[in-house]
Amino acid sequence: MWQFIRQLFHKFGSPKWFYGIASKMMPWLLAIGLILLLAGLVWGLAFAPAERLQGNSYRIIFIHVPSAFLAQSIYIMMAVAAVVTLVWRMKLADLFVRAVAPVGAVLTFLALFTGAVWGKPTWGTWWVWDARLTSMLILLFLYFGVIVLMSAIADEKSSARGVAVLVLVGVVNIPIIKYSVEWWNTLHQPATFKLTEKPSMAPEMWVPLLFAVLGLYLLFGWLACLRMQTEILKRERRTRWVRDLAAAGGN
């Protein structure tokens, strides 16, 4: 098992190998992701029952929670990749960070936006400076920082290290987001889903939510593969295999 992991890790050093694997997985990720997400959203919008207090406004949860969940997961994945960049100098890890940072920024924005629109009818305000909302806003700025930094440094190696350090510094924000609702008094309610307890939500509501989360996860996988391919093509454009690929029209 360990041997297999090491071999896989070794292979990840080869962008050409990854390009091929990504091409094979992408149709599946896109198809299954779209089906799950659409099923979850249609189910949540039209078939899940209304909530006892919030009525229908709670249906925003089916996009708010997946966005917020992915926004944080992507950052954690970026932090793992940053460690790999700094310790093993694996370029594919740096390419991953570059490829997914804009996706993370968009999802963080969506989590904040849908939260604000949901907050108006529910809490009575678009925005409060409570710990959860503020730490999510900081996450958005961290993503912006990463995006700006990666285009600001021209040298590949120093850019990779600079970006990796910034990503790692920012990772302390993730536990703050997660536990903000427990450590401090916030307007945002505590987590509905906990690893150790059963969800404090009716099954006819959390099942479609789970579909939406899984679907968005797979769609992120598709986006990550696609965007990493772009980064690989940019970096490797002088190599034989990319030239052959370009000559064949990308297939």
């Binding site: 006892r52 809490w123 505590p190 404090s200």
Partner: peptide, 14 residues
């Protein structure tokens, strides 16, 4: 200003 705080429990009216 009075803001409503929702708890983490979501359930249908029934």
């Amino acid at each position: 200003q009075v803001l409503a705080k929702h708890d983490e429990n979501y359930m249908p009216p029934e």
